[in-house]
């Protein structure tokens, strides 16, 4: 469908070409969090580089610090003073312009007193003109297939639809990066795969960089360009696995490719290898 007549929807804010270099870059990233015995190091020496438009998944057993890492990238949590984290060349101090968080707990993140449309407006109000806001919200809702539910309230929607609303809200601000913390973790398998495909389509059309936290090995292999595995306590990146499967990917065809099965096995092995059991992940 690469017809020149069909213009690409302008959903990425900043054209990806005017900044060269990685979207995210972290060196020696460490995080201390309060615990009952004073400060505890959660992450240590995390060196991560995410290219513009890249899809990177973060895997690791429960409690290793995946959410913590993502919150640092989103500017919601400060790392230690000797850490460096930058987004598009600028040091991250507070939530950076152009990177939006998508939370696993969609129900707590959406405002039940606002319609879906007004929920999507939230990040635009006061920042763009009214007509532009209307247009962007409509576009974002269309992109996630919810154009016809604009006037409804989020709590009338299924979980999958509510997560779509949150995605639309993030997309409406035209971010160049999405930080997604187990966004499909609470959804059933069918809804999950349809949202995975939706996310792929969105990324294809917007060129957004995506950092995606998940417990699901299949999901990570299916969606990613690269997988990083957090291990240890304090945690650091123990494995990096490139996923060079052809795109666009298909739920059945891609998952039947020998390359997919090999990668899935490889990721699985690193995790079994590390923990001696697989039960903690997946």
């Amino acid at each position: 469908m690469a017809s020149p007549l069909r213009s690409r929807p302008e959903l990425t804010s900043v054209p990806t070409s005017d900044v060269t270099g990685p979207a995210y870059e972290s060196h020696n990233l460490s995080v201390d969090l309060d615990s009952s015995e004073g400060a505890r190091r959660i992450l240590t020496g995390v060196d991560l580089e995410v290219a513009q438009g890249e899809f990177v998944s973060v895997l690791g057993r429960s409690g290793t610090g995946k959410t913590t890492l993502l919150r640092v990238l989103g500017g919601l949590l400060d790392p230690t003073a000797d850490s460096t984290v930058s987004f598009r060349g600028e040091p991250v101090e507070g939530p950076p312009e152009g990177a939006v968080f998508v939370f696993q707990n969609y129900a707590a993140s959406l405002l039940p007193w606002r319609t879906i449309e007004r929920n999507v407006d939230l990040g635009l109000e006061g920042k763009v003109s009214k007509p532009e806001m209307r247009q962007r919200t409509a576009e974002a809702l269309a992109l996630v297939g919810l154009a016809d539910r604009a006037k409804d309230y989020p709590w009338r929607l299924s979980g999958g639809m509510q997560q779509r609303v949150q995605l639309a809200r993030a997309l409406a601000v035209r971010p160049s990066a999405l930080l997604m913390d187990e966004p499909f973790g609470a959804l059933d398998a069918m809804t999950k795969s349809s949202l995975q495909d939706e996310l792929q389509r969105v990324q294809e059309r917007t060129g957004a960089t995506i950092v995606f936290v998940t417990h699901d090995i299949d999901e990570a292999v299916y969606l990613s360009d690269r997988i990083v595995v957090l291990e240890g306590s304090p945690a650091t990146i123990g494995h990096r696995i490139d996923v060079d499967l052809p795109r666009p990917r298909h739920q059945l065809a891609t998952k039947e490719l020998p390359a997919f099965l090999k990668l899935r096995r490889a990721v699985y092995d690193t995790i079994v290898d590390v923990h001696g059991q697989a039960g903690d992940v997946a």
């Binding site: 939530p95 312009e97 939006v100 707990n105 707590a108 993140s109 939230l122 990040g123 809200r169």
Partner: peptide, 26 residues
């Protein structure tokens, strides 16, 4: 829910807007 505050920060809402649009109605 702390997620509500994280949402406000991630979407760059001002302190005043966070109070008015999120905290007060919540």
């Amino acid at each position: 829910d702390p997620v509500l505050l994280d949402t406000a920060r991630s979407l760059h809402l001002s302190w005043f807007d966070t109070m008015r649009k999120l905290i007060a109605p919540a």
